[in-house]
């Protein structure tokens, strides 16, 4: 696998980058902070000194005009990538978002519009080379409109819908599109929140994602327990959802 990871410096993306590098897959990191990219590339190099060092390039989901150049750099670094993984996204609590509409606009733009635009760039390239794999992180928060994640969840719901359609449309073209729906995972994104039962660790999620990529699956709940949890939540009647806090 020759994988580009947008968001690979932190959290689940970091764990995926390590997991792939450990298997011997080639990795290229995209992110918005040059220093962080350099530190993460150094980490991969020290772990696997004999492997081709991971290349890096700047890519900011708030700056779509840079997407093509970032993917060019990745293509050059990997000698044409065949896999792209997007873990990058913004998160904020509902209170924080409601208090700041400008910030809400940023989050919705990054998590939905610009992520979709990024995927459109990737799709074009992969289709042109006869297919490949695209894994994008949505969330269980997009499965049902819920009070505490009304805005963040909506950005992910839109993304899930796009990814599903992409799979329908291009499955026959050998473009495998994977929509990843993590439940609660203990990363920097959730550092301020109290972990619920079944909270996952980034390493376990990374293993699940790589396995799903290998098997060209279209959708993944991880940790797997969340599939069951969401099956129940999706079936709760509206009058219940109105009453409960989540």
């Amino acid at each position: 696998m020759k994988a580009v990871i947008l968001g690979g410096t932190n959290g689940i993306g970091r764990a995926i980058a390590r997991h792939l590098a450990e298997r011997g897959d080639a990795v290229f990191l995209l992110g918005r902070d040059a220093d962080e990219l350099e530190r993460s590339a150094a980490d991969l190099k020290a772990r696997h000194p004999k492997q081709r060092p991971a290349g890096t390039a700047l890519c900011d989901l708030e700056a779509p005009e840079g997407f093509a150049a970032a993917l060019d750099a990745a293509d050059a670094g990997l000698d044409r990538f065949d896999t792209v993984i997007v873990t990058a996204a913004m998160f904020a609590t509902q209170d924080r978002l409601e208090a700041d509409i400008a910030f809400t606009q940023r989050l919705l733009t990054v998590n939905f519009a610009n992520t979709v635009v990024f995927c459109e760039h990737v799709k074009k390239r992969l289709l042109a080379r006869g297919g490949g794999r695209l894994a994008v992180f949505s969330s269980v928060a997009g499965d049902r409109g819920r009070k505490p994640v009304a805005l963040y969840g909506a950005s992910k719901a839109g993304l899930s819908a796009y990814l599903e359609a992409l799979d329908h449309k291009h499955h026959a073209d050998k473009l495998a599109v994977l929509c990843v729906k993590p439940g609660f995972v203990k990363t920097g994104m959730t550092a301020g929140l109290k972990p619920p039962p079944f909270a996952g660790e980034p390493e376990g999620v990374a293993r699940d994602v790589v396995r799903a990529l290998d098997r060209r699956k279209p959708m993944l709940y991880t940790p797997s327990m969340w599939q069951l949890v969401m099956a129940v939540i999706k079936r709760l009647p509206r009058f219940v959802m109105r009453k409960i806090g989540f």
Partner: peptide
């Protein structure tokens, strides 16, 4: 415990 990157390793000297 999540701040767990290796920032450099020199196999000649063993400095990590």
């Amino acid at each position: 415990r999540h701040a767990n990157r290796i920032l450099g390793f020199d196999p000649e000297t063993g400095i990590l």
